[in-house]
Amino acid sequence: MNIKKYGLLLMLFCFFYSGLHAQTKKNTTHSGSAASIARGKIVYANICLACHMADGGGVQNMNPPLTQTTYVLGNKTALIKIVLNGFKEDVEINGQTYSNNMTPHSDLKDQQIADVLTYVRKSFGNKAGAISMVEVKKVRAANVAPAK
């Protein structure tokens, strides 16, 4: 009898504790990258969401997901170039091909590109490092836009 009650209490405790734990976890993100993520979320909503969708899951056969792809998690220079130059290559992205074309977004400021990519690399289940404005600046300076 008593054991059952204690069991339930334990359950209850776990329940609240896990809630609390989630809360504290959210608050301990580094403030610099937290600010960048917050700004990046806005850029994402204004520019990228239309194609890659609110959950980063993309659109079947048309626009690829931004979840755990080699492009999102991988080489930063290549990733920055995707935003600067757009992307229309007949490549498989996590085993699927996508038919839509991504237009260039070189009109975005270095900071905006850093923010949106930091947001993408830390959202939708992705856990990759932040991208800084300086890194974007460097890539842009060395970037040769592909022929039309």
Binding site: K5, L8, L9, M11, L12, F15
Partner: peptide
């Protein structure tokens, strides 16, 4: 007291 503590559990169930 125990019952009061358990109320949320009942609610969840």
């Amino acid at each position: 007291k125990v019952l009061i503590l358990l109320l949320p559990v009942f609610a969840v169930i």
